[in-house]
Each structure stands twice: as C-alpha cells, then as structure tokens.
C-alpha cells in the first residue's frame, strides 16, 4: 500500500499520492486516448523536419485552410495561402515532370529570398522579383516547407518566415 496516500495537500508539491489502482486506471486511459484518436503516423517526423532549420529565430506563417476547404483541390493547379502578421505567401503548385512547379507571390513584394525545403532532397533557393513573384521548377514530391528570408529593410536585420510542411 501507499503509505503516503492520506497526506493532506502541502505547499511543497506532495499533493499527489495516487493509489496503485489510480495509476493503473490512468495508464489504461493513456493507451485509450491514442487508440481512440491516434496521431497521424508521420506527424512526429514531419515536425522534426519542419524545425530542422539553420536559424531558429523564425516567424511562423499560418496556413489559411479555408481555401482548401472551398474545394480548390482537384485536377488543376492548387493554391495554398500562408499568412503572418504583415506578409502573405501564396503558392500554386502544378504537377511537372516527376514533381511540381511552384508559382508564388509574396505580398507585400520585394526582393526576398525563397527557399523550398523537401525532406530527403537538397533545398532550392530562388529570389522573388520586386513585385514579390517567384517560381521554382522541378520541386520533388514529398514533405515540403517554404522558408522566406525577407529582404532587410532600412538597414535592419532581415527576418525569416517559415511555413508548416505540406505533403505533396
């Protein structure tokens, strides 16, 4: 038996003395949560890829999912939009060769650097034009992430914006 289980809560954190029966039930629940709603099998791997960045001082652009829900998915080029405070990233991708062609648009525009990371492949880097347009040919299929190195303005240090991964 757990000799401490009748202790009153105290200030030093000794407020938890679960019985063995409690611990068994909690362990059962632990297993059950994963059975009822299992994580996608590759989620941990995708997160690990997404955060394997050279520079950790990054801002995260969020995926505007509503566009995809609106039924854009189909045979034609697909478009996804990511936003972070003062930057919008739009990317269309169309099958090309064994992979994809990316056509993107950064708003507001500027001579930003766009890096396309694909798991298991070398990154491709391209420069956006003054209007914020960029294109990348032959992006391999796989877990893909965009890293935007914003052109430094007014002599300040350039910011880096990253997206969550998409699986193409």
């Amino acid at each position: 038996m757990n000799a401490g289980q009748d202790n009153n809560p105290t200030a030093n954190g000794q407020d938890d003395n679960p019985t063995e029966e409690d611990l068994l039930l909690l362990a059962e629940l632990d297993v059950l949560f994963d059975k009822v709603d299992p994580m996608p099998a590759d989620l941990v791997e995708r997160v690990q890829f997404a955060i394997a960045l050279e520079d950790l001082d990054v801002e995260v652009a969020r995926w505007q999912r509503d566009q995809e829900l609106a039924g854009v998915r189909g045979a034609g080029p697909n478009t996804v939009t990511f936003t972070v405070e003062d930057l919008t990233i739009m990317v269309s991708f169309a099958p090309a060769g064994g992979g994809y062609r990316f056509d993107g648009w950064l708003v507001p525009g500027g001579p930003h650097t766009v890096e396309v990371r694909v798991a298991g492949h070398t990154s491709t880097t391209t420069a956006a034009d003054e209007g914020g347009r960029f294109a990348v040919d032959q992006v391999p299929k796989g877990t893909t992430q965009l890293v935007i190195h914003l052109a430094a303005g007014h002599g300040g240090r350039g910011r880096t914006v990253v997206t969550p991964t998409l699986v193409l």
Partner: peptide
C-alpha cells in the same frame, strides 16, 4: 487535417 497544421505551428513557434 487542421490539427496537423496546429501541431506544426506550435512547435515552430517554440523555436523562437
């Protein structure tokens, strides 16, 4: 699907 995005966003936000 949305949950997968959120999970990634949270970990990316942690970096900073």
């Amino acid at each position: 699907v949305s949950a997968e995005d959120v999970v990634q966003t949270v970990w990316l936000a942690l970096l900073r």
